[in-house]
Simulated scan of single mutants.
Amino acid sequence: MGTGKSRKQAETNGPRWLNAAQLDAWRSFTFMFARLQTELEAQLQRDAQLSYVEYYVLAGLSEEPGRRMRMSRLALLTNAELSRLSHLISRLEKRGFVRREPDRDDRRYTNAILTDEGYEHLVRAAPGHVAKVRDLVIDVLDDEALTALRESSEQILHRIDGCP
């Protein structure tokens, strides 16, 4: 090899390539993930004139007491940088779906608040979105497969978040 390392050392220090089964699983997963997001985005745009992330901002706010959440927490929920989320919230404000106000407990923070109009729009959008999620994911998997999907997703998220 010319590096002074034994073959075994080079193998353990080099890339851990995927075997055929792992590569097949990875390709299937990434293709499915991309296609699923595209399909859900198209459904939401067509039926509710919302992007995928806009829908999840409204849904996230709808589940909170007072339908309000700090922008910083909402950014984490939607996996968006605060500046990107701020632009998204501005678009939703222009449509009358959300408003912003300083946090009552700590005025250094800003809350996003789901308006009644935004809540009503979400209520109209949700049945079509849930139907699409059921059609594409839930109804094609049995209970065992859904449990495996949830557990696998949680394991991957824990790894991403740096948890053991």
Results as ranks from 00 to 15, higher is better:
D142E: 03
N13F: 08
R99E: 13
G128A: 07
L40I: 08
A148M: 02
G118A: 01
T78M: 07
S90C: 06
D139P: 05
V140K: 14
N79D: 15
N79C: 14
A20C: 10
S90A: 14
E144C: 00
G4Y: 03
L40R: 09
W17L: 15
L114N: 03
N13P: 03
R124Y: 01
S6N: 00
E11D: 11
I113A: 02
A125C: 07
V130L: 13
R95G: 14
S6P: 00
V123A: 14
D47Y: 01
R16P: 08
C163Q: 13
D24G: 09
K8N: 07
E81T: 07
T12G: 06
R7I: 04
R108E: 11
G60I: 03
R7K: 06
V130M: 10
D106A: 13
Q155H: 04
T3H: 14
L58F: 03
C163E: 14
S153K: 02
S153Q: 09
K5F: 08
E11I: 11
C163T: 11
L50N: 03
I138Q: 09
H129M: 10
S83R: 13
R70Y: 07
V130I: 12
L44K: 01
M1D: 11
R46G: 04
P102W: 10
H129K: 03
I113G: 02
A131G: 05
G118P: 04
G14P: 12
D135N: 10
S86V: 01
E11V: 11
A48V: 04
D161W: 10
A145S: 05
R91L: 10
A80R: 01
R95F: 06
V137S: 04
E151Q: 08
E154I: 04
L157C: 01
H87M: 07
W26V: 10
R108P: 04
Q9D: 09
L76T: 09
Q37L: 11
L92C: 04
I160L: 12
D116M: 05
L146K: 09
R68T: 06
L92T: 02
R100N: 05
F97K: 08
A59Y: 12
A145T: 00
A20P: 12
Y109Q: 05
L23Y: 12
L141E: 00
P127A: 07
V140D: 03
Q155F: 00
R159E: 07
E81N: 11
